[in-house]
Write a protein that binds this DNA or RNA. Structure first.
Ligand code: DTP
Ligand code: MG
Length: 429
DNA sequence: GTCGCTCCAGT
RNA sequence: UGAACUGGAGCGAC
């Protein structure tokens, strides 16, 4: 029997319990066996004994994944592979065991799908390199990344670290579980399912090879999933790096570049994670701002027949959430403009025609826009946008400072805003 | 401090 | 009804 501590750790009751908790919390759809999150506990009681034994003896056969196609931004379609609830739990349990083992070996420049790391850190790293004089970007995105992961390459890498043959074999079976298209099941010899809890970790383990190769060559870069930017000093160097990396990816990892999303250009002409770097400052991409405006138009449009409260609620949570991500933009010029734009939009659509109470409009404006931008840009909530944004100023920007300026405290402002953004129970339409 | 839910963003 | 990972904001319960 090949069962070692690895599989035992996967099957430990604590680990399985938290894995199930996570799968349940995601409230995902059923797999090909039709077992939903709700009837999983009963299903588990009936079959766990058998399945556990199969897992321990290395005989367990995962079910195929269910194929669902969803549209992508660029017009193409994304092929999801939805494992059964049982397989999602098992994969999650494996991921929880493997993450603490593999994650420490990952590159400091890898930011996607990793605990404690996010897109902001990735774009800030790019910014630092640009400021250090590496302004030319080799922007690479892989074609159909998850769908083209090579099993042999990945299994070899896994085998270097995972000593447990049963676990290794189980991961191999998950990779080759097949997909159900319509009525029949089709085998697959390539790819890891977009929808498998283990897939993001496997993706990082595979591209960890690339990260270390980049480090070995002394490159400055940031990677987020299959999206990466290598920063160099000249276009010549960029072209050379692009060529050699393309060769490395295709030769060693059997992965292809997405030519449409890959290029060598000044970082100010590249997009990464929704941002770009203009004159050393982080700024959101124009198309992201356009998407934001479009969404606000929808939310404030007259063709949406819902109650006032509901509309305010939805608008507030969208604006606040959006600024939570894009609010790290340091390019402050567009922000007052954006603030003004939202104000105009709200007044135009609703103040006159719909006779919104003035107080409600003011509270909405205070809610996600003025306040948040004011805090983040070191100015008062009265739109003193031209005030210097020195580090000392940032430091001084605390509650005391607000009060000293004769402004309401941050807490007061937030309480006002919260009263209109998230009532104890969600407002009705 | 530990869980539960609603959102937002990136991939 | 479209899975997953990660980060964030908020609310709620012990
Ligand atoms: N909802 C999702 N959106 C984007 N990426 C996802 C999602 N779920 C899983 N992923 C993973 C799988 C993708 O292979 C990987 C990279 O995303 P992305 O580059 O947008 O698509 P892709 O690499 O599959 O196709 P493309 O050829 O268009 O680049 O991130
Ligand atoms: Mg891609």
């Amino acid at each position: 029997m090949e069962t070692t501590e690895w599989m035992t750790a996967v099957l430990a009751s604590d680990n399985l319990r938290s894995a199930w908790k996570r799968v349940k919390a995601n409230k995902g759809a059923q797999g090909i066996d039709g077992v939903t999150i709700e009837d999983f506990p009963a299903h588990l009681r009936a079959h766990w004994g058998d399945i556990r034994r199969q897992l321990e003896t290395g005989r367990y056969r995962p079910s195929a994944v269910r194929r669902v196609e969803i549209p992508k931004d660029d017009g193409g379609k994304r092929l999801l592979g939805i494992p059964t609830v049982m397989d999602r739990v098992i994969q999650q349990a494996i991921a929880q065991v493997l993450t603490p083992i593999f994650d420490p070996s990952f590159s400091a420049s890898s930011f996607g799908f990793r605990p404690g790391r996010n897109a902001h850190q990735a774009i800030r790293q790019v910014q630092r390199h640009v400021k250090d004089g590496y302004a030319m970007a080799v922007d690479i995105d892989l074609a159909k990344f998850f769908d083209t992961v090579n099993h042999d390459v990945l299994m070899k890498i896994l085998g270097r670290t995972i000593r447990d043959k049963a676990l290794l074999a189980l991961i191999g079976r998950y990779l080759r579980a097949g997909v159900q298209v319509g009525e029949h099941i089709e085998p697959n010899d390539i790819g890891t399912p977009q929808g498998g809890p283990l897939s993001p970790l496997l993706a990082n383990i595979l591209l960890n090879e690339l990260d270390h190769e980049l480090e070995r060559r002394g490159h400055r870069f940031a990677r987020y999933a299959d999206d990466m930017v290598v920063l160099v000093k000249s276009r010549r160097a960029g072209e050379r790096v692009m060529q050699s990396l393309t060769r490395y990816l295709e030769g060693r990892l059997k992965l292809k570049r997405n030519p449409a999303k890959s290029k060598v250009a000044k970082m100010s002409e590249c997009g990464f994670l929704g941002f770009t770097i203009i004159r050393g400052k982080i700024r959101w991409l124009e198309k992201k701002l356009e998407a934001f405006k479009h969404r606000v138009r929808e939310l404030t449009g007259r063709s949406w027949g819902v109650s006032m409260e509901y509309r305010l609620h939805k608008l507030g949570q969208y604006v606040r959430g959006w600024l939570g991500y894009f609010g790290i933009s340091e390019y402050y010029r567009p922000i007052p403009e954006l603030d003004e734009w939202i104000r105009r939009r709200i007044r135009m659509c609703h103040w006159k025609q719909w006779r919104w109470p003035r107080t409600k409009i003011n509270r909405l404006l205070a809610l996600g826009v003025s306040l948040k931008t004011a805090i983040q840009h070191g100015t008062s909530s009265k739109s003193c946008w031209h005030m210097a944004r020195t580090p000392a100023m940032q430091q001084a920007l605390n509650n005391d400072w607000f009060l000293a300026q004769g402004l309401p405290s941050i807490k007061t402002l937030w309480c006002q805003a919260q009263g209109y953004s998230s009532s104890p129970s969600e407002p009705t339409r």
